[in-house]
Each structure stands twice: as C-alpha cells, then as structure tokens.
C-alpha cells in the first residue's frame, strides 16, 4: 500500500501536469471574435441603445407612437373578445326568445322569471334564455341604477342563479316536449269528464258477480245457472 502522502503528491502533480485540450486557444479566439462582433458599434440597434441622446429626438417620438399603437390594438382586441364572450349583451345577435325577453324588462325583474324552473305564468319563454339575460344586467342599466342615487343602491339584487345540473337539464327537456301544444289543447271540462269516466270504468262492478243471500242448498243451483263452463 502506498503512503497517503505519496498519493496526495501524485494527485497534486497530476493537477499540475494537466495540459489544455488541443485547439482550445483557437476556439477561444473564435469565441472572442464573435463576441466582439456582437459588440461592434456598427450594429444599428446597439448604436441606438448606446446613445440614448438620440432617443430624445425622433427616436423618442417613434417609441411613444409604437406604444400608442400597441395599446390601441390591445384595446380593440379586448373589446372584440368581450363581445364574443357575452353575446347576451347584444340583443340583435341573440335567440328570438331572448329578444322577446329583453323587450319586456318588467317580466325580467320579477323573481319568477329568474328561476331556472318553469312556472305556469311564464310558459311562453324558455327558462334558459331568461336566465341568461337576467343574470347579466346591461351596462346601461347599471349606469342608470348608479345615477338613481342612494335609494337605488338600497335595492338588493338577487344572486345570479346557479347553472343547471345535468339532471335539471334532462328534466327540462322532458317537461317541455310539445309542452305549449299540449297546454293549448287542454280543456278543463273535458279533462274532468275524462277522469270521471275513467274512475267509473275502474270501479264499476262486474256483471257476472251476483251477491247471493240464499241458503247453501240453493247455492249450487244458483252457481250452476250463473257460471257457465268456459270449456
């Protein structure tokens, strides 16, 4: 086994004797040249950045103009996105039912119309349309409410209805299949007469069953006359 001191000396002498890789100097020279080329003053961009005094004249105007154009583009794009996300705020682009609802603001403000479920009084309007319109008050209405003063601010607005669940949506589909046509064809008197007739039909005694008070001796003859063999 070698002495540890010798091993340490071996390691240190190995570090001392390390030779640089072949071509290292050439690679470094190339890297320095490319770095120097990047820093060269003939680069117009770097020239301008190094001389901010030039930006104070025409360059400054250009920068400000570019910022203004960018801000304008962002504003226009944001407006378009908002319009695409909230079509209910634009009545002309909405469903006909929505148009009908927006044309009658009194019905919107009633609590029944804000419910996602159909009430008999609001049968002509699709509940989904009512919900969409009523949950997003228009900007004009908000401004008017703000202008109305402190009395208007006391009016409480109900929370927007929760979105329908899958079951609720299925229930609505079931309940509204041909709903208006059926409602139009309903006549209360006819319905009542039909129900009475069905009741009578159900509870009507059968003609073959006879209530018998005769003694057992006579029962045999009675059954013999009443029951007819089927086979």
């Amino acid at each position: 086994m070698e002495d540890p001191e010798e091993v340490v000396d071996t390691v240190l002498s190995g570090l001392r004797a390390v030779a640089p890789p072949v071509g290292m100097e050439a690679r470094i020279q190339l890297a320095l040249q490319s770095h120097r080329a990047d820093q060269a003053p003939d680069s117009p961009f770097r020239f301008r950045l190094r001389r901010p005094a030039l930006l104070g004249g025409f360059g400054g105007v250009l920068v400000v103009a570019a910022w203004c154009v960018a801000a304008l583009c962002l504003f226009v794009l944001a407006g378009r996105r908002g319009a695409a996300k909230h079509p209910a705020e634009h009545p002309a682009a909405g469903h006909p039912a929505e148009q009908a609802v927006t044309s009658t603001p009194a019905s919107i403000s009633t609590p029944e119309s804000q419910s996602p479920f159909v009430t008999p009084g609001a049968g002509a309007v699709h509940p989904r349309a009512v919900r969409l319109v009523s949950s997003r008050p228009s900007r004009g209405a908000a401004v008017a409410a703000a202008d109305a003063g402190p009395a208007a601010s006391l009016v409480s607005f109900p929370a927007p209805p929760m979105p329908l669940t899958e079951q609720e949506r299925l229930l609505l589909v079931l309940a509204h299949r041909r709903g208006q046509a059926r409602l139009a064809g309903i006549d209360a008197q006819k319905q009542e007469a039909r129900e009475t007739e069905q009741f009578q039909e159900f509870f009507k005694p059968e003609p073959s069953i006879v209530v018998n008070d005769t003694p057992p001796a006579a029962v045999d003859t009675a059954t013999a006359t009443t029951t007819t063999p089927s086979k």
């Binding site: 570090l15 001392r16 390390v18 290292m24 470094i28």
Partner: peptide, 27 residues
C-alpha cells in the same frame, strides 16, 4: 490560457467545463 485552464481544472476536474471557464474569463 494554459494556466487558467489548470486553475479551472483543479476545481472542476472536467476538461470541457474548464475550457468554458477559460473562455468566460477572456470574455
């Protein structure tokens, strides 16, 4: 470059890393 390479190599013990260090030093 040679002495800088040896200095960097004694710390890093990697030829490529040491060469990068030398290059960075001259930059």
């Amino acid at each position: 470059a040679p002495v800088l390479f040896r200095v960097a190599y004694s710390v890093l013990r990697s030829r490529t890393e040491a060469e990068d260090v030398v290059q960075d030093a001259f930059v």
